[in-house]
Amino acid sequence: MTATTQTRIGATARPERLSPPRRRKSRRRSFATVAFHTSSSLISLVWFAPILLVLVTSFRTFDDVSRNGIASAPSTFTLQTYFDAWVHGELFRALVNSMIVTVPTVVLTLLLSAAAAFGLSRYRIPFRRTILLVMLAGNLLPVQMILIPITRIAQQLNIFDTLGAVIAVQTAFGLGFYTFVLYGFMRTIPVELQDAASLDGAGPVRTFLQVILPLTRPALAALGALSFTWIFNDLLWSITLINTDSRLPMTAAVLSLKGQYVSSWSVIAAATVIAAIPSVIVFLFFQKSFIGGLALGSVK
């Protein structure tokens, strides 16, 4: 998980192995190590416990949980909960809806913001710094400012209650932040590469697609992984722009499922697990980029 940190191991490693072994000191040190691992394990355990609780609960039967309480030791094992959530709770359809929103939004946002960042960072466009900051400012606006106007616009354009409306607004809203990050990244690409390309007769679009974009891949991977989870996890736009149950993306669908299965904690837990899986998969695959991206994108 230590994308940014590994490089420095050499620099920060304590010189313990170098110093002459003095008994008193090493005993104090081993005490410190035990104390460190004890406290760290405790903190980690406290942090992980809620996840474990939901995982365990999701495999218990309704009777078990309602009779013995959610905190009791599990005495049953079932997959019925997942079946209920997936089929009766219609989370499968919700997952499809979420993907229909998330994948195009991530691709569109990255492509558009990469194009803007390319123009702003590689050419002397007048007012480019102002344009960049205005775009970033747009992303920092509290989303509540545009909630009602966007709903009205979506109604006027007849796209209210469609996934397309969510894609459109998520793309527009994300652009500023991604442009800002990609701009910073693209500035570091040496100009010579671009010059070489234009000497070979490549126009700006070809330079962008074939030279700059491939070199920007690390930043695109980081932003892609982050924005996947952000968009997949978003609730506000789905509940604002979507009315029809069958069109709800995952987060909103799980929330309404909670209303239906009010007392059935094991089904809710199963739904919770299902809703978490896609983001967890993206996180596991892109772990390094993901964490690097968070640190780089500390705007969010």
Binding site: M1, L53, T251, V254, T272
Partner: peptide, 23 residues
């Protein structure tokens, strides 16, 4: 340890809310 602390950021706030409602 870092991963344990970091993992929750991956979950949506809705997932977080459901986890803690059970708590």
């Amino acid at each position: 340890y870092r991963t344990a602390l970091f993992l929750p950021i991956v979950f949506s706030l809705v997932v977080t809310s459901l986890i803690w409602s059970a708590f």
